[in-house]
Write a protein that binds this DNA or RNA. Structure first.
Lengths: 185, 185
DNA sequence: AGGTGCATGTAACAGGTTACATGATTAA
DNA sequence: TTAATCATGTAACCTGTTACATGCACCT
């Protein structure tokens, strides 16, 4: 009954969800996104800064100036209604948005038009996947430093493949994603 | 030296790539996209019709009116430069675009803010994957009708998981995507 | 007679990227 | 001193979705 008509855009939800990680300036949020959620949700300065203003106008976040020396700096935190809006979103049972645009797959799909190129297309896809995997794995070494919090392992059935997701409740609540080999049945 | 400054947008490439499948009207293209490439590249009427006009202006496709009875209908085909542009794109070694927006993963990533919701979030992700898989598999039975053309099997290393892609060079050159269980090593 | 499918299109809107402008602090 | 990093912001542009308008053909 509270939260009077909250208009929470997709970008707004991301920003709202990131603030509890302790990332509080627009710059912080962008840096963190680029290291983590980028793999399944990217965001640019052109979205983040205006969005912080919009959220503030709706009383979902509150920003206070905390200049670092002479350098302008605005630190944001969730308000009570911001926290409520975040939890409402996490609990909502609307089908979560899923969008994929994969030019490599598209090329492969069209490769009947130029079959001799097929193997190159596949190589490019493999290269992308390898870069992506390297990045995801490179997050992990950080996870072992400091006292490791409780560990939660989730098994996601994605097609016939299983993904193991490890949650480390350490200082940064970092997420490690690994694909898991399946045993044949 | 030929193809004088061709400005081929992402949507333009999709449309160009689809025409050789024998789908020639805007409506056809949309229907086909929704059945196939939608899984890795979607397109709407609002893109397709204006794009066909833009491609025609650049002499990459040619449309001729072929009314079906009293029903207006424009059938498109590739021009020579259109075919060249398509092949140039398929051969280009620019890193192919890859974009993913996955709200479920985002929720999961943020779920420290509401841990008791975690399992529901995972269920929603699983549900999405199951719907998607069901759809992909449902394409396959069609593949066995009619004389099946040459079959090409590609193994894509995506992370530690293998994907098998079967190419059926039948009338529709249909693509079947399956995940493959891996043998443990 | 009515619903579904075939068929073409656009206007308004929403969402997102890129490039730019500006300037302080910090580490090499 | 100079480059990298921290920090904020916007304007112009590009892309894409949604909703609407229109109408014929075909099947039941």
């Amino acid at each position: 009954m509270s939260a009077s008509r909250v208009d929470l855009t997709a970008t707004g939800r991301v920003v709202l969800g990131l603030i509890p990680f302790g990332r509080r300036t627009g710059y912080d949020i962008k840096t963190f996104v680029d290291r983590t959620t980028r793999h399944f949700w990217a965001a640019s300065y052109g979205q983040i800064y205006p969005e912080l203003k919009r959220l503030e106008k709706q009383d979902l976040v509150r920003g206070r100036p905390e200049p670092a020396g002479g350098r302008a700096r605005i630190v944001y935190e969730l308000t009570e209604s911001g926290d409520a809006a975040l939890k409402a979103w996490l609990s909502s049972d609307d089908a979560p948005l899923y969008e994929l645009r994969d030019e490599g797959m598209l090329k492969l799909f069209f490769s009947d038009s130029l079959p001799e190129q097929r193997i190159e297309i596949v190589r490019a896809i493999r290269a992308r996947e390898e870069r992506s995997l390297a990045h995801l794995l490179s997050i992990e070494p950080h996870a072992s430093e400091g006292p490791e919090g409780a560990r939660l392992t989730l098994q996601l059935g994605i097609g016939l493949t299983e993904w193991t997701i490890d949650w480390c409740e350490a200082t940064e609540r970092r997420l490690a994603i690994e694909t898991r080999k399946e045993t044949p049945r």
